[in-house]
Computed example of a mutant assay.
Amino acid sequence: MTANIMGRTICALGDAASMPVQSFVKHFGAEFEYHIENKSASCRRKCSARAVKST
């Protein structure tokens, strides 16, 4: 979704607003996936292992 916003808006706020979201997904994507799949935010050990594998 953020790729559709970056560089396609007249207002610079569109670009600025999408940058943190891209960074969160890049660095914490495993945590987001775990929370969505398990309806729980306790993901420390499992997500850290997945994040290391994906980078």
Rank of each mutant, 00 (worst) to 15 (best):
M1T: 10
M1F: 12
M1R: 05
M1H: 07
M1W: 11
T2V: 07
A3K: 12
N4Y: 13
N4L: 13
N4W: 11
N4G: 14
N4C: 09
I5P: 03
I5D: 05
M6E: 11
M6L: 13
M6R: 12
M6S: 10
G7C: 00
G7L: 06
G7S: 10
G7P: 13
G7K: 10
R8H: 15
R8E: 09
R8I: 09
R8P: 01
R8W: 03
R8Q: 10
T9Q: 11
T9C: 11
C11W: 08
C11E: 04
C11Q: 11
L13V: 11
L13Y: 02
L13T: 10
L13D: 05
L13Q: 09
G14C: 00
D15L: 03
D15W: 08
D15V: 03
D15R: 09
D15N: 15
D15E: 13
A16H: 02
A16E: 01
A17E: 01
S18Y: 03
S18K: 10
S18P: 04
M19F: 07
M19S: 08
P20L: 04
V21L: 14
V21Y: 05
V21N: 03
V21M: 12
V21F: 05
V21I: 15
Q22P: 02
Q22H: 08
S23E: 12
S23F: 14
S23D: 11
S23L: 15
F24D: 04
F24Y: 08
F24V: 14
V25R: 00
V25L: 14
K26T: 14
K26I: 03
H27G: 08
H27N: 08
H27R: 04
F28N: 11
F28I: 04
F28E: 08
F28D: 07
G29L: 01
G29T: 01
G29P: 04
A30F: 03
E31V: 03
E31F: 08
E31P: 05
F32A: 02
F32Q: 07
E33W: 02
E33H: 00
E33Q: 07
E33L: 12
Y34M: 01
Y34V: 04
Y34Q: 02
H35P: 00
H35N: 10
H35K: 07
H35Q: 09
I36Y: 05
I36N: 06
I36S: 03
E37T: 04
E37M: 10
E37L: 13
N38I: 00
N38H: 15
N38R: 01
K39D: 15
S40P: 07
S40C: 13
S40K: 02
S40L: 01
S40T: 07
S40F: 04
S40M: 09
A41M: 14
A41F: 04
A41Y: 12
A41K: 15
A41Q: 12
S42L: 07
C43T: 13
C43I: 01
C43V: 03
R45I: 12
R45F: 05
K46G: 01
K46Y: 14
K46R: 06
C47E: 02
C47N: 01
C47K: 03
S48E: 11
S48Q: 12
S48P: 04
S48C: 08
A49V: 14
A49Y: 02
A49S: 12
R50V: 12
R50P: 00
A51G: 10
A51N: 07
A51P: 02
V52W: 00
K53V: 06
K53T: 07
S54V: 08
T55P: 02
T55D: 11
